[in-house]
Design a protein around this nucleic acid. Structure first.
Length: 279
DNA sequence: AGAGGCACCCGCACGC
DNA sequence: TGCGTGCGGGTGCCTC
């Protein structure tokens, strides 16, 4: 699933392709993508717009257009943004929208499970509109150990559920949550409010460390994820615990376990990540 | 307000 | 082989 590193990889590659270029036209073939907009109205609004930059907060992409408005995208679970040097005919599998670029080339939004969303967001007043949707981006300076501690204090929900909460920190999904909790030696089921300040600091560092590694590896492609050029990432080979049930912990050789925490498939080392009593 | 459950989808793994 | 069933997962919304 695209999490912060995958979306960041897409952001960088897409920026290389389309920043400074003008949209020739667009076609929205799945109305659900732009609901409640009417597909032709949505597509028409893109025509002739120049792409000024591409930003990212958590797993959201903001394709900033002239006219002080951003095409805002979320890929959810199976969304892909794929570059083509022409306009593919027939369209790529699971195509929901295609954006044609002046001078040649196109970007396809493909999405087998059709959870992804697209909408417009004005630049003026955006902070007010966005307020509460996400907390600080995990890789930004605004995400601090102290801030994380403030958000965890007094909370009884398990640590994994809390770092998956995009209002606490934006960008962590199921994969990197498991990896960060392992690095920080925090049990996924441990109540977030139980963590002492040093352990919160450790968790904060681990989140940043694993996300940074994911970006460097070009994301994780254990199944569907592909970058803008259709290439796989390499992070799946660097997982320490995620999807490694039955394998040995790389630190202590204990067998990795899998269970369900926060309604998510969860992997951890029972020895490195013990449940702390009254920590 | 916090916590948990479910809907939204559909490809895929699995069992018969 | 073919069919039916269950699962997963990010987010928003709902209930308690």
């Amino acid at each position: 699933m695209p999490e912060l590193p995958e979306v960041e990889t897409i952001r960088r590659q897409l920026a290389e392709r389309i920043v400074g270029r003008t949209i020739r036209g667009a076609r929205v073939s799945d109305p659900r993508l732009v609901d409640p907009w009417e597909p032709n109205t949505f597509a028409g609004r893109l025509e002739g717009r120049r792409v000024e930059r591409i930003d990212r907060v958590g797993k959201y992409l903001f394709i900033e257009l002239d006219g002080d408005e951003a095409l805002t995208l979320h890929l959810r679970m199976t969304g892909q943004l794929l570059w083509s040097d022409d306009v593919p005919d027939p369209p790529l599998p699971y195509t929901r929208a295609v954006i044609g670029i002046e001078g040649g080339g196109s970007v396809t939004f493909a999405d087998s499970r059709r959870f992804g969303t697209a909408w417009f967001l004005p630049r003026v007043g955006r902070e007010r509109i966005w307020a509460g949707r996400t907390g600080p981006d995990a890789m930004s300076a605004a995400f601090t150990a102290r801030g994380l501690g403030d958000r965890l204090r007094g909370r009884t929900a398990c640590a994994k559920a809390l770092i998956l909460d995009q209002r606490i920190v934006a960008g962590v999904g199921n994969i990197y949550a498991d990896e960060a909790l392992f690095m920080a030696r925090v049990n996924p089921a441990e109540p977030g409010g139980n963590l002492t300040a040093p352990r919160v600091t450790s968790l904060h560092r681990a989140i940043r460390d694993r996300l940074r590694m994911g970006i460097t590896a070009g994301g994780a492609s254990f199944d569907r994820y592909r970058d803008v050029n259709g290439e796989r990432g390499g992070m799946q080979d660097l997982f320490r615990v995620h999807r490694r049930r039955g394998e040995q912990c790389p630190r202590c050789q204990t067998t990795i376990e899998k269970g369900v925490v926060a309604q998510r498939g969860t992997y951890w080392c029972p020895k490195c990540q013990p449940l702390m009593e009254g920590d």
